[in-house]
Nucleic acid binder design. Sequence first.
DNA 1: CGGGAGGTTGACTAGCATCAATATGGGTGG
DNA 2: CCACCCATATTGATGCTAGTCAACCTCCCG
Lengths: 259, 259
Amino acid sequence: MDATASTNLQPFLDRLALRSVLTDQERRAILGLPGRARQVRANHDFVALGERVDHASLIVAGLVGRFEQNGEGARQITAIHVPGDMADLHSVVQPQATSALQALCVATILQIPHAALRSVTARHPALAEILWRDSMVDAAILSQWIVNVGRRDAKARIAHLLCELAFRLGAPVSLGAFSFPFQVTQMQLADATGLTSVHVNRVLKSLREGGLAEVGRLEVTVRDWDRLRAAGEFDPNYLQADIKPHERLRIVQSSHAVT
Amino acid sequence: MDATASTNLQPFLDRLALRSVLTDQERRAILGLPGRARQVRANHDFVALGERVDHASLIVAGLVGRFEQNGEGARQITAIHVPGDMADLHSVVQPQATSALQALCVATILQIPHAALRSVTARHPALAEILWRDSMVDAAILSQWIVNVGRRDAKARIAHLLCELAFRLGAPVSLGAFSFPFQVTQMQLADATGLTSVHVNRVLKSLREGGLAEVGRLEVTVRDWDRLRAAGEFDPNYLQADIKPHERLRIVQSSHAVT
DNA sequence: CGGGAGGTTGACTAGCATCAATATGGGTGG
DNA sequence: CCACCCATATTGATGCTAGTCAACCTCCCG
C-alpha cells in the first residue's frame, strides 16, 4: 500500500522465520502485505470490546495490552504485545473482538486488512499453518500467565513478567545485568499481574532493594538476571525462541501458489 | 485405522462445523482420520511435560486437564478439555509438550498421528484454517481463565468455572435448574481456580446453602442458573457457540484437494 | 506556576492459606 | 459380607499476604 509497509513488516517476517521455514515466494508475500500505519496515544483503545474489525494490528513500535474486565470493572491485562507481534491475528478468524486492545504507551501499529491476509493464505497455504504456529506461542504465553496469577506470590509474579518481557523484547539477558526500554505504569503492571498498584509499588521496592531489578518510568534495569529469573521461576522454554532450524517443521510441504 | 475411529471423530467434526463451513470432501477427510482409542485411568498423565509426541489426543469421553506447576510444585490446571476437544492440537505445530495432560477422571482418548493431520491439512488447505479457528476459541478460554484467577474472588471463580463447563458440556442451561455429569475432586477444582482445596470446600458449601449449585462427586446440580451466572459474571460470548451460519467465515474459498 | 497523573508510604482490614483433626465413602482383600 | 484402608471431604483455629483507605510526594506538561 505504502512504501513504509514492507519496512514495518520485516520484524514480523523475522519473527515467523524464527520458527518456520518460509520459501522466497512466501517471504515476498508477507513483505508485500498492504498496511496503514497509525500512531496511537497512550491509554487509548484502538480496538474496542465487541467491535467488529476488518484488519489485524501489527505492532511496529511501543507496547500494547489486551484488556478484559470483571463485573466490578476491575481491569485485567491478559496479554502484552511487543513490536513484531500481530496483536489480534485471531481476528482474521474471529472478527468480533472479545477483548479490547489498548496502547500501554505511545505506539505505532500497522493495520493489515483481513482481506489481504485471507488472500495471502489462500495463495500460499503454508502461510496459514505458519501463522497458526505463531499464534500457538501466544497461547503458551497465556497458559504461563494463568500459572503466574494462579500459583505465584506477588514478587514471583512481577519477576516472571519482567523476565518474560526482557526475553521477548530481545534484551541481552546473557549479560546478567542490562537495561531495556519498558514504558509501563505501576497500575498497568498491577492489571497484568492481578495485583493492586499499591502492592506492585511495594514489590518493586523490594526488588530494587534486593538488587534484582529497578523499574523506572521508561525502562527496566535488571541488576541480576539469574536471581530475578529464580525469583520469577522463569524458564523461557515456552517462548519457543530457540527452535533449531531442522526442528522448524513444515506441514504443507510446497506452496502450490494459486494466482 | 479401526472402525470405531470415525464414530469417535463425529463429535469433533460437529464441533468444527459449528464455527466453520466444511465441504463434503473435508468432512470425509476428518472422519477418515486414523486413530488409536485408549483408556486412561484417573490422575494419570498420558502426555508428560517435555515429552515429544507424534500424535494429537482427541477426547472421546471423560475430562482431561492441562497441568503446569510453579517452582514449589504447586499445580495449576490451565485448561479443562471435554469430549469432542482436541486436547493438544497445538502439538502438531509444536511437538514438544510445554505442559502435561492428565485425565481428571477415567477417560477415553483417540490418538491421531500428527502425520495424518499434516497430510489432511496439506490435501485440504482449508482445514488448516478451520483447525486454527478452533484453537483460537481455546485461546479465548485461556484469556478468560486469566481474568478468573486474576480479578475474581473465590466464589466468583468457582461459579464462573461451573458455568463455563456446564455450557461447554452442552447442559440444558435454558432450563434454569439442571444437572450435568462432572466428575472432578475439590482438589482439582482448587488447581483450576488457583485456590486451596480447603477453601474450595467452603465456597462449595456457600453455593449449596445459597441455593446456587451443588457439586457432588459425579455431577453438578445447578439450582439457579441465573444467579450462578451472575455470581460468576459469566458471559458465554467468548465461547463462540452461537455463530450464525452466514458468519462462519471461510478463508480458503475452495479446497483444491491434492491427491 | 498550577494541575493532574502517577509514585510512595503508613495503618488497618479481609480473604484466603495453613495447620490440624475428624468424618465419609468407595474399593479391596480376607 | 465384612473390615479395613486410603483418598477425599469437612470443619475449626490461627496467621499472613495482599487489599483498602488515606495522605503526601514527585514529576511532567501546559
